[in-house]
């Protein structure tokens, strides 16, 4: 399993541009807000939790299609079905590897954006924590929808329509955690909810992803 994870991540790491694009998108979206709304520190600071979180959600959404696309086209995804290991576990590993290379950099990059948007420094740790707890949930939920829309080809809006309603709870708790922290309060409650969502989704989503992959490759 460890070897598998390492191979997956090495394969993903070789597709540098695809991993970098969501990050660039994340930064750019955040850079648009001061231009459109106002560069004043006070107003931006108030908007920052929501803006950063919405940008993170959109960046995850944007990158989802590349999660299974290559393997679906090359047939490697079908090979996974014939492995003697459980499909759900294999896919969970792959999603985890994918998160390490996309979600983790996103969370680590977030304080830079917090600084750009005048988010109080005291809220930066909570921002990173909320993204660390929230983005795996997003990737897990999104992976199921991404697998379902594989046969439909690239760039379909259906993926966004399917996934965004499911992202809402994470968005609510994530941004309200950061907002609470930047107002000087405690964000423990929201972070606990994010953790609970992650645990619940991590238990169910691998099976949903496996079912979706089976449907997508017409073996079910």
């Amino acid at each position: 399993m460890g070897i598998l994870l390492r191979t997956e991540m090495r394969l993903l790491a070789r597709r540098g541009a695809e991993l970098f694009n969501p990050l660039g998108f994340f930064v750019l979206v955040c850079a648009l807000f001061p231009l459109a709304v106002s560069p004043e520190a006070e107003r931006l600071g108030g908007l920052a939790p929501g803006v950063i979180w919405v940008a993170a959600v959109l960046a995850v959404l944007l990158s989802l299609d590349s999660l299974f696309r290559h393997d679906f086209v090359s047939g490697a995804l079908e090979q996974l079905l014939f492995s003697r290991h459980s499909l759900a576990r294999l896919l969970a590993l792959r999603v985890f590897g994918y998160w390490v290379l996309t979600g983790l950099p996103l969370a680590l990059l977030a304080p830079v954006l917090g600084g750009m948007l005048h988010l109080p420094v005291a809220a930066w740790p909570v921002l990173v924590q909320s993204l660390l707890l929230g983005t795996p949930t997003l990737v897990l939920l999104g992976a199921a929808a991404a697998a379902l829309t594989l046969p439909l080809g690239r760039a379909n809006l259906l993926l966004a329509l399917l996934v965004l309603p499911l992202f809402m709870p994470v968005l609510i708790f994530g941004s309200s955690a950061v907002a609470a922290a930047s107002a000087g309060g405690s964000a423990a409650g929201q972070l606990a909810f994010l953790g609970a969502l992650l645990i619940g989704v991590a238990a169910v989503a691998p099976h949903a992803i496996a079912a979706a992959v089976r449907i997508a490759v017409h073996l079910d």
Binding site: A144, A145, L148, L162, P165, M168, I172, A208
Partner: peptide, 22 residues
């Protein structure tokens, strides 16, 4: 595929309602 979406949506609906309430 649509059936799977239905089930995922139905599982999520209570969570969405709860979080929106919060």
């Amino acid at each position: 595929a649509a059936a799977l979406v239905c089930v995922l949506g139905a599982l999520n609906l209570p969570i969405i309602k709860f979080s929106v309430n919060w």
